[in-house]
Simulated assay, not measured.
Amino acid sequence: MSEFVKSVVEVTAQDLQGPGVVFCPNPKMPLWSNHPRVFLDVAAEGSARCPYCGTLYQLKAGEKVHGH
């Protein structure tokens, strides 16, 4: 039986792509944990959870997302 470990990944404003998103799986994840790539809007709420693996991506404390 395989079980995903839910983890928290803190990101900085510089880690965000385009309009404030990150993608999961991220490049630091092990190959066995691959799933379809999803883009998660972290800028809107300050955090977002991957619907596939449950990883929570959140802005580090004090980080500000600047508009383009």
Rank of each mutant, 00 (worst) to 15 (best):
Met1Gln: 11
Met1Glu: 12
Met1Pro: 14
Ser2Ala: 14
Glu3Ile: 15
Glu3Asn: 13
Phe4Ala: 10
Phe4Lys: 12
Val5Thr: 14
Val5His: 09
Lys6Leu: 05
Lys6Trp: 06
Val8Asn: 02
Val9Gln: 03
Val9Pro: 00
Val9Asp: 00
Glu10Lys: 02
Val11Glu: 02
Val11Arg: 03
Val11Lys: 02
Val11Tyr: 04
Thr12Asp: 12
Ala13Pro: 00
Leu16Ile: 02
Gln17Cys: 11
Gln17Trp: 12
Gly18Thr: 09
Gly18Asp: 15
Pro19Val: 10
Val21Asp: 09
Val21Cys: 13
Val22Tyr: 01
Val22Glu: 01
Val22Leu: 03
Phe23Gly: 13
Cys24Gln: 05
Cys24Ser: 12
Cys24Lys: 04
Pro25Phe: 09
Asn26Ala: 07
Asn26Glu: 11
Asn26Leu: 06
Asn26Lys: 05
Pro27Tyr: 06
Pro27Glu: 05
Pro27His: 07
Pro27Gly: 10
Pro27Arg: 07
Pro27Ala: 10
Met29Asn: 01
Pro30Glu: 10
Pro30Phe: 10
Pro30Gly: 08
Leu31Gly: 11
Trp32Ser: 13
Ser33His: 05
Asn34Phe: 15
Asn34Cys: 13
His35Met: 06
Pro36Thr: 05
Pro36Ala: 09
Arg37Tyr: 11
Arg37Ala: 13
Arg37Gly: 06
Arg37Asn: 11
Val38Phe: 04
Val38Ile: 07
Val38Met: 02
Phe39Leu: 04
Leu40Met: 04
Asp41Ser: 00
Val42Ala: 02
Ala44Lys: 15
Ala44Cys: 14
Gly46Pro: 01
Ser47Cys: 10
Ser47Gly: 06
Ser47Asn: 11
Ala48Glu: 12
Ala48Gly: 10
Ala48Trp: 06
Ala48Lys: 08
Arg49Leu: 08
Arg49Met: 11
Cys50Ala: 09
Tyr52Arg: 03
Cys53Phe: 04
Gly54His: 06
Gly54Cys: 07
Gly54Arg: 06
Thr55Cys: 15
Thr55Arg: 09
Thr55Gln: 12
Thr55Met: 12
Leu56Val: 14
Gln58His: 08
Gln58Ile: 07
Gln58Asp: 07
Gln58Val: 10
Leu59Trp: 06
Leu59Met: 10
Leu59Asp: 04
Lys60Pro: 07
Lys60Gln: 14
Lys60Arg: 15
Ala61Gln: 13
Gly62His: 07
Glu63Thr: 01
Glu63Phe: 01
Val65Trp: 00
His66Cys: 07
His66Leu: 12
Gly67Cys: 09
Gly67Arg: 13
Gly67Trp: 11
His68Cys: 05
